[in-house]
Design a protein around this nucleic acid. Structure first.
Lengths: 215, 215
DNA sequence: CGAATTATTCATCATATGATGAATTAGACG
DNA sequence: CGTCTAATTCATCATATGATGAATAATTCG
């Protein structure tokens, strides 16, 4: 065995700058590796070294491009989409179809793998309550939830009631996203998305309209 | 950290076995500290030293009582609950009231702080996908979800459809538990539990009965 | 060409962690 | 009393982690 040889396949990479064209956009490769890693293992479970390994790059290079781990995370989570925009569009629907519009919009968006990666990361870190997650939580709740609440309020419900309904809407959608994309529960993962939507819409519309059980 | 200096108040505890009556059941104190810590920070985020600190005890003592971290975790999430029993009882209800029974049972159970601690821990680690969580996930899905599915199937729905409905039931309940107890979203946290139940039941009953939207 | 810049790896640090074994003090039991 | 065992802290290890500062090799630009 030659001196530098390390076990599995990975040739000990050369030391300086590589000749042109050799490596595609490394920075992007790292960011993508990070997204995947964060999505798989959550913020705390992910290590800079793990990201480096996945990107086939030295760990120091990760630090070179993105100063700190938190920085990397921030950049990864800085969505390729503007969730507030998406939701805003979804909210622009007549009241009786609001549920359908929201559910369809959100669930379809999550079918896009890129958005799903980020979404899973966000959900995970919100649930984890990690330092990184606290900011996201604030954003999600302030921006998204109150957007929904305001739309409901706009149809003649008082503010407090509207917030209650909005949180139920979110609870149902979050539950489905969790089971389908994060926990990956059997029936939900393999069902075609249209089926999931069809099953989710009535519940959400019910929440929007404030269906309650009487004691 | 400087070695000997102990900042806030805590006198450097004495070294051998303490005189009688001095310390209540230390083992239990540690287990409770662990439960709280796991519930707050998730499996990975929790450290043996952190638990020790919370229990006001040397870290080695934690290892003395519970060999490994995984062992401690197992013991903590095992303790007070037999979720299968709880669910089984909830499933023993006439079909039109099934939703109410399940929702009421589960949501009320979670109002008990002890169970809540464990529950939050379980949810967190299932979502996190940590090593510890994988076992729990299997258990939850196999035991709980298929219990619900079988009950639904028992009312004359085919097996596949029943599993689909069961997963929707769980998605709704999980969503509410998440928002109320894990993420602690404003409106849901402060609402009286009866209000939350009233808002959740119709959605869940709808899932049980397989309400769909037609295209 | 030569200097500056960029892309990359290497070597290393300080810290936190899970774990282990020894030391110390007290109660239990004969 | 003396011995055994239980409860407790202390000292330490090996490892992983985030981070930093070289060192090295290529590209760019004046």
């Amino acid at each position: 065995m030659l001196s530098g040889m390390v076990e599995s396949g990975s040739a000990p990479r050369r030391r300086g700058r590589p000749r042109k064209g050799q490596s595609g956009d490394t920075r992007t490769r790292i960011a993508e590796a990070a997204a995947a890693e964060f999505s798989d293992k959550g913020y705390d479970g992910t290590s800079m070294r793990g990201i480096a390994r996945r990107a086939e790059v030295d760990a120091a290079l990760v630090h070179h491009y993105f100063e700190t781990k938190a920085g990397l995370f921030a950049e990864v989570v800085k969505l390729p989409v503007r969730p507030d925009r998406i939701i805003a569009a979804a909210l622009d629907a007549p009241f009786p179809e609001l549920g359908g519009s929201i559910v369809r919009t959100v669930l379809l968006a999550w079918e896009d793998p890129k958005l799903k990666h980020v979404g899973v990361t966000v959900l995970r870190s919100v649930v984890t309550g990690s330092a990184a997650g606290r900011l996201l939580r604030q954003f999600l709740l302030r921006e998204l939830m109150s957007a929904v609440a305001e739309r409901i309020e706009g149809s003649g419900v008082d503010a407090e009631e509207a917030r209650g309904r909005a949180s139920m809407v979110i609870s149902q959608i979050a539950g489905v996203l969790m089971l389908r994309h994060v926990v990956e529960v059997e029936p939900l993962v393999f069902q075609p998305i249209e089926g999931v939507i069809a099953a989710t819409v009535p519940a959400v519309q019910g929440h929007i309209e404030g269906v309650r059980v009487e004691d």
